[in-house]
Design a protein around this nucleic acid. Structure first.
Lengths: 219, 219
DNA sequence: TCCAAAACCTAACACTAGTTAGAAAATAAC
DNA sequence: GTTATTTTCTAACTAGTGTTAGGTTTTGGA
């Protein structure tokens, strides 16, 4: 029956690339099949030969975007020597993450930008990947703490959320042509590992955190 | 002429509240005047008695949301004793920021969620406020560094972007009923000031950062 | 009670959305 | 070239968009 499988794959890729770019720029609801079609140099109706709905398109973009981050960070870590210390691991992971969400393509950018506005069903489907990625970081951090290279009282889960949040938000301000990714990654790693405070000046648990006279705002 | 100024303000507020909530849930393009109207218990056409366009609505929401963060953090800092140390200032600012974007209402949430997908003209208008807020943090951090309470080699601008990114991303994972804001703020402040590494183990500038054998990913 | 201003609603406008059926063009094996 | 298959386009449909003009109800002071 199927005598050929043709270059359908080529324009399917073209459509997907266009979709990623447009989703990134206009958000989920703001993206139009006709805009994607323009970008991919065909007509809106033709998209449906490759993808059977807008939701299937965004779904594909999200999967690719998430996998890109996961795979990039994973292989960057795998390429490290076995005896790499925490600082190397953290900075490498940060640099790989930033590279993925900034340089590798529009997929990761689109993913970070639209993940909050996509239909619930699609977001749920993307959750497994997000969880995998979270686990990757959690493992790095927990291991480091077990090996005694982190403060014993550090809350790893909250710290991970803090770090990944900062990394993800980078897409909102990073402009190519300014700072390099290496520069940013190095400074971020410094904050994560050393903090801003002067070494020796740390008194995390001894801080007068509970007995202050400041207003509690709303909470 | 104007014999009364009436409770127009009341339903104007009702419309605005509804708008904030819907914008937060569905994004800019995904939000419908009719959906907002439903939430505010009136018809779509009636919204135009209070606001003359959808853009004016989102604009109002953005302004309020941004002001809420700015004012909350500002007054929390002002309420601190004059001799408050860096740790107190940072933790207070973090707690106030988190309180604002999580508790004070849907406005800040909507602001954080849609700021990237709003028409350029509106985003530009909101920039002044964003810049003011950035300056506030920049001042705190620069002052601390001048007073010698921070590492001298810390890049304040990048650190500020790191911190604010992490704080802003909180809206993506924070669920009321789980961790308290105080808890999160305390741990975040600890990371910012002390880092995750063990005190005394810091070697930020002496780190073998440039001469590693790891792949540079794409960059 | 009256009445003008305020607040809201109805019904529609012009437009655009995602999607589809069927025709047309491009493609590749024979 | 012939022909079956793949790929694209055209043209439309329905549903929903922001917005508006004009009418209706509500409101509160006289």
């Amino acid at each position: 029956m199927t005598r050929k499988l043709a270059k359908s794959a080529i324009s399917q890729k073209r459509v997907l690339d266009a979709a990623a770019k447009i989703f990134r720029d206009y958000g989920y609801a703001g993206t139009t099949m006709r805009t994607i079609a323009d970008e991919a140099n065909l007509k809106a109706g033709s998209i449906y030969y490759h993808y059977k709905s807008k939701d299937e398109l965004i779904s594909a973009v999200l999967d690719i975007g998430m996998h890109a981050v996961l795979d990039t960070v994973n292989s960057a870590l795998a390429a490290l020597p076995a005896d790499a210390d925490v600082r190397q691991r953290i900075e490498t992971a940060i640099r790989a993450h930033l590279s993925a969400i900034i340089d590798i393509g529009d997929y990761t950018l689109a993913t970070r930008r639209v993940i909050g506005q996509v239909p619930e069903a699609i977001r749920a489907q993307n959750m497994r990947l997000r969880d995998s990625y979270a686990s990757l970081w959690q493992t790095i951090l927990v291991d480091a703490q077990k090996r005694g290279e982190f403060r014993a009282d550090a809350n790893i889960t909250l710290s991970r959320l803090f770090i990944l949040g900062a990394l993800n938000w980078t897409v909102e301000w990073f402009k190519p042509g300014g700072r390099t990714i290496d520069e940013v990654a190095h400074e971020f790693a410094a904050v994560v590992l050393d903090g801003l405070g002067k070494p020796g000046n740390t008194k995390s648990e001894a801080a007068p955190a509970k007995a202050r006279a400041t207003p509690r705002i709303t909470v």
